[in-house]
Amino acid sequence: MDEHLVSILTNIGGFTFIALSAYLLLLTGEISFGQQAFFGIGAYFSGIVTAMWGLSMWAAIPLTMLAAAFSAGLVGIITIRLRGLYFSIATLAFAEMVRLALVGTTWQVKIDGEMIGPNGSEGLGNIRWALDNNIEANDFMWIVLITLAIVMGLFFLMERSRLGSIFRTIGADRLLAETQGINVTAYKVAATALAGAIASLGGIFYAHAQTHVYPENFDVMLGVHSLAYGLIGGLGTALGPLLGVILDIGFLEAVEWVQGYRMIAFGGLVAVLLIFMPRGILDERRVHRLRMAFRTRKTEPPPAKTHDPAAS
């Protein structure tokens, strides 16, 4: 496969994880500006595990996801009383603190004559697990895409399960959820922890594909992008964030004549798209209609009233 295409697909895979994590929180009615923190924690933590401790990426994945889930859950508990914009800004502040902490942290050890470890704004380099184990870019892409397929599959299962409907109920009407006996606090913390773990997965793959990461990779731009992906692609299905990432990265990479002007064109396109599709391309109604078209036998109830978390 073409090298360029491989790197694009690997990137699409990596960024879809963080888009999914923002999407998961949107389902529960929260807008997070801070998912880049867990993407960054994922990149750094896993990089330290493989490059400094010499473990394999397969060991790093569960360890990193646990660490990210733990820190995200902690943030979720601290911010549990905040709603709407207050939650968004608190997550932003947290993420910026994480990024600045990375800029301010230097912790290097000598391995095989080389200094390895986080080095302030110089970032963390030599994350060579894939190279050392002769995993080619093509294979690495498949690792990313298969993991993504598994996570997406779990998302589909979740959305059809009771858990999915609990998340959507909390998102649509927190009070209603409480009166139905749902422990909103517990589910919200669980959702933030889960979202943190999913975002960190993106960071793990990003770090091991790039081999060098910088704190500035995890700035607020990444966070807002990850939110935008879900909204561009659509909030009706987990395919929405994926579609958003494909449109962004695919569009930017594929259309060469817009190189240099790409954000001018893309930014304008997104703004126009949102005028006509304020809940994205695959919104609840279109997803419902598509489902009906593919499955004519069984009739489903129409989706619940759409809800806009930013309005609360």
Binding site: Y261, L274, P278
Partner: peptide, 19 residues
């Protein structure tokens, strides 16, 4: 009622203006 779309749209315009 589409406050989230507005916010993301301002982000898109931000990218546009910066570029």
């Amino acid at each position: 009622g589409a406050a989230l779309a507005s916010m993301v749209s301002t982000f898109a315009i931000w990218m546009q203006l910066e570029e």
